[in-house]
């Protein structure tokens, strides 16, 4: 029973981790909380659902197309809503992000209506039973795909040229640009990668919970943000850890305390962690810039 709930928590947490990565990457580079990230997640879920149901595209192709289109949306968003404000106060960009979030949400409501859409399961539903846990095929796939995406991201950031450029930009934007790094390109790539991860989470949650709605990005967007802060915003491993912990805390709260207080439990943990470690769990490397 405990292990069963733990698996439920890890599966949910891995989707939070993917969302949190989008927040933390963008924050690491331009110190902006991209509140429209939850809507990119929702957009990814809708694209995946429409490709699978209307155009009969095979699931894994739809999955990558959703990620690609969400990247484009992320890049467009950055170009239209954040780039013109890059030299103004951080508050202006934040408000622009909130505006973009509300705009995208209402656009989706206008086009798709308020009712939920069914995301058909792309796999024959199958359950793997052992003596003490039961895992469904969808859960296994979510875990494997999330793990591979996070592995891929770590490789991208640690080993590739653009990854080095991203880390340099995160440390000091001006010096990095003096060293010949194209800051605009780095920011574009950051938005593209973060949005793709968010869309991947959206599609996977769509097949996990079997429904897609225009408002679906609201709570997971908030939770992804909380996970990023919990782990230490700006830190990539922090976002992964924060997401997993938040997912586990939420499920355990629902299972052992009360299902009505699960969000309260999750947010209470955030407050406690921040009281003792304001920079987040793995946030110590983040120094306040002067």
């Amino acid at each position: 029973m405990f292990f069963q709930q733990l698996i439920n928590g890890i599966v949910l947490g891995s989707t939070y981790a993917l969302i949190a990565l989008g927040y933390t990457m963008v924050y690491g580079i331009i110190e902006l909380i991209n509140f429209a990230h939850g809507e990119i997640y929702m957009f990814g879920a809708f694209v995946g659902m429409i490709l699978v149901t209307v155009y009969q595209v095979p699931f894994f192709i739809a999955f990558f197309l959703a990620m690609a289109l969400a990247s484009l949306l992320g890049i467009t968003l950055e170009y239209l809503a954040y780039r013109p404000l890059r030299r103004s106060t951080r508050l202006a960009a934040l408000i622009s992000a909130i505006g973009a979030s509300i705009f995208l949400q209402n656009l989706a409501l206008l086009i798709m209506g308020s009712r939920p859409y069914s995301f058909p399961s792309p796999f024959v539903s199958k359950v793997y039973k052992t003596s003490f846990v039961t895992v469904s095929k969808v859960e296994v796939i979510i875990l494997i795909v999330s793990f591979l995406l996070m592995l891929g991201l770590t490789f991208l950031i640690q080993k590739t040229k653009i990854g080095i450029a991203m880390r340099a930009t995160a440390q000091d934007k001006d010096t990095a640009s003096l060293m010949g790094i194209n800051i605009n390109k780095v920011i574009t790539v950051t938005f593209a990668v973060g949005s793709a991860l968010g869309a991947a989470a959206g599609v996977m949650v769509g097949i996990y919970f079997r429904s897609v709605t225009p408002m679906m990005g609201l709570m997971p967007g908030l939770k992804g943000f909380v996970a990023a802060v919990l782990g230490g915003i700006g830190s990539i491993p922090g976002a992964m850890l924060g997401g997993l912990l938040l997912g586990i805390a939420e499920v355990m709260g629902a299972a052992y305390i009360s299902s009505q207080y699960r969000d309260a439990v999750a947010f209470a943990i955030l407050i406690i962690v921040l009281l003792f470690k304001p920079s987040g769990l793995i946030g110590s490397s983040l120094q306040e810039k002067v």
């Binding site: 029973m1 069963q4 709930q5 439920n8 949910l12 949650v205 919970f209 429904s211 408002m215 679906m216 709570m219 499920v251 629902a254 299972a255 009360s258 299902s259 009505q260 699960r262």
Partner: peptide
């Protein structure tokens, strides 16, 4: 007896308790 909230998406924790 388990509860949930309107607009919830995830019912796995409750269903796991019930399945037990």
């Amino acid at each position: 007896v388990e509860a949930f909230m309107d607009n919830d998406e995830n019912f796995k924790p409750q269903l796991t308790n019930i399945q037990q």
